[in-house]
């Protein structure tokens, strides 16, 4: 489950950045709001750096009035394409996995008697 969680975290970050640019803690809090998605807050930063290295995310420093400078992350065009591709794949994948799991769950209910 941990690996699955790690695998989907990147697209989830891209999805949040698709709505608007966010700074680090903001992203962490939004992700943490979805139960079970984030194992530890710190993992977001190495992930953001990997996404940046892959050209899916950019960052810039913003100096807002009354606030200290913060680094805001934004999704790139390549990031949007990657996110769209993942959405399509995920929908199909989730349906497939869901179908198999539900089917097995149904079998599991009848297996004790049917197996004899």
């Amino acid at each position: 489950m941990t690996e699955l969680r790690r695998g989907v975290l990147g697209p989830c970050v891209l999805a949040l950045l698709e709505l608007r640019p966010r700074f680090g803690l903001e992203l962490v809090r939004d992700l943490a709001a979805s139960d079970g998605l984030l194992t530890s807050d710190g993992t977001v930063y190495p992930l953001l750096n990997r996404l940046r290295d892959a050209g899916l995310v950019t960052s810039e420093w913003r100096d807002e009035e009354g606030e200290r400078a913060r680094r805001y992350y934004s999704i790139t065009a390549a990031g949007q394409e990657a996110l769209a591709a993942f959405r399509a794949d995920w929908t199909q994948f989730a349906a497939t996995v869901g179908g198999v799991l539900n089917h097995l769950q149904g079998d599991a209910h009848i297996a004790p008697d049917g197996g004899r």
Binding site: F23, G24, L25, D41, Y45, R70, R71
Partner: peptide
């Protein structure tokens, strides 16, 4: 450069959190 960047990110996170 990776180490410095991550150190800055974690420091900024703590300043905000």
């Amino acid at each position: 450069e990776k180490a410095v960047e991550l150190r800055q990110q974690i420091t900024a996170h703590l300043q905000d959190a």
